[in-house]
Amino acid sequence: MAIVVEGTGLTKRFGSGDATVVAVDSVDIRIEESELVMLMGDSGCGKTTLISLLGCILTPDDGELHIDGEPINPEVQDLSVIRREKIGFVFQLFHLLPYLTALENVMVAMDLARTKTTEAENRATKLLTQVGLSERFHHRPAQLSGGEKQRVSFARALANRPKIIFADEPTANLDSRQSDNLMSLIQELRQEHQTTIAIVTHHEGLKENADRVVQMKDGRILAT
């Protein structure tokens, strides 16, 4: 299996002097194609920091990162290009644009990548139908439930056919029924798109959906 994301010796520190926090400490991690990895650990152990590093939102202080086989060099590369072409994000707080409908929120991701509007609309329609929101195309985020918003987020994350989706606590703001529905949706989407997904969660109950669980503690990955 091809390796989609590979980090070696990834380290990220925040603050300086006595107040320095090593949020991610020499982490080695590989994620293979089509894999569903769950990243678990106590609050503050560095999960979000780690996926931000892997998702090219943060740049590491130390270590190397390869995505889709290519080395990432923030000094010479515009990371926003990598983010929009290779990576999808799902956030705990959904972060849909309030002034756009569900359909437009999915289209925006493609607009960033300069996809033609008609093409983007077709794909957004298809994706929203897949996530079960064919009745909600023209609803604004304020008119959608938490579960529906998170489905729109997944559709948006899939829009540019990313190599990997990083989801940070996607179920944390959902009730258990909504979160079960979302997990089954994620399974369906994997079937359909063979997408690689890394999910950060502290819901022990979601473990069973994962191909692999990575445990973190104090910025390090525990041996499995």
């Binding site: 926003s80 290009v81 929009r84 956030f91 644009l97 994350a157």
Partner: peptide, 9 residues
């Protein structure tokens, strides 16, 4: 968010 999901400056 726009920047996070790949919007350039």
């Amino acid at each position: 968010v726009l920047k996070a999901i790949g919007g350039s400056n």
